[in-house]
């Protein structure tokens, strides 16, 4: 059996990759993909602990997280498309009318 540390290391790595992606990338779609990566790393944590503890709650949570991520994806992509129609760009550096 693969020790639990390996799974946790993998999911932490995915999570950090997601965070770094959100902070450094400037394309709205790539930022959104990085956020999905963060959510999926959390899913991996839940599944790992669920199997490790022999407790089914974690697997149930994964379903909820997946449903929420799908709803967010629908709304988020709609917003990104609406922005693109308006400004013909999804580069976050160019979406900057609101500032002081």
């Amino acid at each position: 059996m693969i020790p639990i540390e390996h799974y946790l290391f993998l999911s932490s790595f995915m999570f950090v990759t997601g965070v770094v992606g959100v902070i450094t990338r400037r394309n709205a779609i790539v930022v959104f993909m990085s956020i999905e990566l963060m959510l999926n790393s959390a899913n991996l944590v839940f599944v790992t602990f669920s199997s490790y503890l022999g407790n089914v709650t974690g697997q149930l949570v994964v379903f909820f997280v997946m449903a929420v991520a799908a709803a967010e994806a629908a709304v988020g992509l709609a917003i990104i498309i609406a922005i693109f129609r308006n400004k013909l760009t999804v580069n976050l550096d160019e979406i900057n009318i609101l500032k002081w």
Partner: peptide, 23 residues
Amino acid sequence: LEAALKYFLLGSFATGFLVFGLG
């Protein structure tokens, strides 16, 4: 639209932290 995009990106970024913490 810009408000919605910023809210959405940072809001779901926060959700990522929240879910990972819950895990």
